[in-house]
């Protein structure tokens, strides 16, 4: 019995370590903004961090900073999902954008149905995907803001790309 246990133990240990490594090997961190993933899909924490990053880009821009204490009226248009994933919680991204804008104190945020406003920001989330031969996937998510005046003139554009990678299939 003891011999059997001794014989099987190394195999069990190898099995455990490999399955652990197998899981890790599927995760690719592509740059400092990407996160560990088992799928090349956006997670909740990605949404919020991504939304915050692009919103802050806009708020820190020379144009928005030049508004100073004027606090113009701004509408955040409906966020359009042009990715290949219908499960992304667009409302969460939208809420994070409005929350970040509100807490900056730079603008007066208006309801999308309001008729009196100075600027409107249109937002879009899109994605492209590349596939390898062994189940590898590389997805690029892009969040883009376009700022328009009431007469339709575009006055600013900000975007950021979040690359997510999934390595090839696990061996074990």
């Amino acid at each position: 019995m003891k011999k059997i246990l001794l014989l099987t133990l190394p195999f069990i240990l190898i099995g455990c370590s490999n399955s652990h490594l197998g899981g890790q090997s599927r995760v690719s961190i592509l740059d400092d903004s990407s996160r560990a993933h088992l799928q090349a899909e956006l997670t909740m924490s990605d949404y919020t961090a991504f939304a915050e990053k692009v919103t802050n880009k806009m708020l820190r821009s020379r144009l928005v900073q030049s508004w100073g204490r004027k606090r113009p009226k701004l509408i955040v248009g409906k966020l359009v999902n042009n990715t290949d994933n219908e499960s992304i919680r667009m409302q969460d991204i939208y809420d994070r954008i409005t929350e970040t804008i509100l807490s900056s104190g730079l603008v007066r945020l208006m309801d999308p149905s309001a008729t009196s406003f100075d600027y409107v920001v249109k937002t879009e989330l899109s994605s492209t995907r590349q596939y390898g031969n062994n189940g590898e996937e590389l997805a690029y998510y892009k969040l883009e803001f376009k700022l328009f005046k009431i007469d339709g003139e575009m006055v600013g554009q900000w975007s950021d790309v979040l690359p997510l990678g999934k390595a090839s299939r696990r061996f074990l």
Partner: peptide
């Protein structure tokens, strides 16, 4: 099914269908 439900999600799914066909 999404389009009959009045949902724009039809677009996201159809994008996947296009990708899958190529793969």
């Amino acid at each position: 099914a999404y389009l009959l439900n009045g949902e724009r999600k039809a677009y996201n799914v159809t994008r996947r269908a296009i990708d899958w066909q190529n793969i």
